[in-house]
């Protein structure tokens, strides 16, 4: 699909553009919408945002590259970002992160073979009193340990499988 002319986004796009004094200001919210549509910030998304805001695609690409929450590469179904910054690390986040990568068989920033999980570490997420913690597709999951994490992974796998089946049944 696309984000331009997509009724799913039209209202949000207009809302964001209206919010600011200049069109350019809407580049960040629109990049989120592009990422939502394509799963990552691909060239199509960049071009569409550029077109909507009357910007050169270079400018949009530049913004996408500066901020870490825009992914310029495809990710797994679940994008897991483990905070390993100092406060979390003091609570064992580094070990937790290493364990998680091993559990899923991935390198830093890599995606598991089944395409399900991408694991990377991130800087402080303002949840230092609930370490170890991570962000799963930008949703906070706090006060983790290995057992809890195993359960979550299983649950997410099941959810993904269900939605896949749902899709093929449609």
């Amino acid at each position: 699909m696309a984000i331009i002319g997509n009724s799913k986004y039209e209202e949000r796009i207009n809302h964001h553009i209206a919010k600011y004094e200049t069109k350019r200001s809407a580049v960040m919210p629109l990049l989120y919408i592009a990422q939502e549509e394509y799963g990552w910030v691909n060239q199509d998304g960049i071009n569409e945002v550029a077109q909507l805001l009357n910007l050169d695609p270079t400018q949009v690409k530049s913004i996408a590259g500066f901020y870490t929450m825009y992914s310029e590469k495809p990710k797994g179904v679940y994008w897991l970002q483990v905070c390993t910054d100092l406060p979390c690390a003091l609570q064992g986040a580094d070990d937790f992160h290493a364990w998680l990568k091993e559990e899923l068989g991935v390198e830093e920033g890599g995606t598991s073979a089944d395409g399900m999980f991408t694991v990377e570490h991130v800087m402080c997420l303002a949840a230092c009193d609930k370490a170890p913690m991570l962000q799963c597709n930008f949703r906070y999951v706090e006060d983790l340990d290995q057992n809890k994490m195993r359960e979550l992974l299983a649950k997410w796998r099941a959810e993904a499988a269900a939605s896949m089946n749902g899709r093929s049944a449609e």
Binding site: T22, R24, S25, A26, M28, Y67, T68
Partner: peptide, 19 residues
């Protein structure tokens, strides 16, 4: 924002808000 500590610095924040 979208993941950048520097955007807490006020003038960077303004730049970011302006796109």
């Amino acid at each position: 924002g979208a993941g950048a500590y520097i955007c807490g610095e006020e003038s960077a924040l303004l730049n970011s808000l302006e796109g």
